[in-house]
């Protein structure tokens, strides 16, 4: 099953590779990973999307907690949460595709952020599934390039991850 882990780590050199190394050394999956500093410059927050049985997810969280630089972590799937991912997608926008791509972008509440005679670059945010759906919805042949950030997540309501 897909899980989203939110991890606060010390903002120190090597912390990221410790986390990533743990996943590869123990054969766990990383579907996506995002990391950036938080409002507290001594802390970074990672969001890792992984999948595995409950037993494996339990081991992953235990092993992560064992890393000296991991300060705190939660499995967002344990309760309601919000998930967002950003995608930039460059598409061919010529002939009838030009109108079609504008329409598709509007339907998915995307924004066209760069325009040339032949291309649009569309910015799209949403759950990873929504971004997948957009890619499914457009003709593969018009997609020139995509880049995605991987999911970020946060607990719904008053639930917070903070030290």
């Amino acid at each position: 099953m897909r899980h989203i882990l939110s991890i606060l780590v010390e903002n120190e050199a090597g912390a990221l590779s410790r986390v990533v190394g743990l996943f590869s050394a123990r054969g766990y999956n990383i579907d996506s990973l995002t990391v950036s500093t938080t409002e507290d410059p001594t802390l970074s927050r990672m969001t890792i999307v992984t999948n595995g049985s409950d037993d494996i997810i339990e081991q992953i969280t235990k092993q992560l907690n064992k890393l000296i630089e991991v300060v705190k972590l939660i499995d967002l799937n344990e309760s309601d949460h919000i998930e967002r991912e950003l995608m930039l997608i460059k598409v061919r926008a010529t002939g009838k595709d030009r109108d079609e791509m504008k329409r598709m972008s509007d339907i998915f509440r995307g924004r066209i952020i760069d325009v040339t005679e032949k291309t649009y670059t569309i910015e799209l945010t949403g759950t990873s599934q929504k971004l997948d759906a957009f890619i499914e919805a457009v003709d593969r042949a018009v997609i020139l390039e995509t880049v995605r950030t991987g999911a970020s997540g946060i607990g719904r309501g008053e639930r917070i991850l903070k030290i």
Partner: peptide, 8 residues
């Protein structure tokens, strides 16, 4: 003492 040793 190591939670990750339990139920591994």
């Amino acid at each position: 003492i190591d939670p990750s040793s339990i139920a591994k």
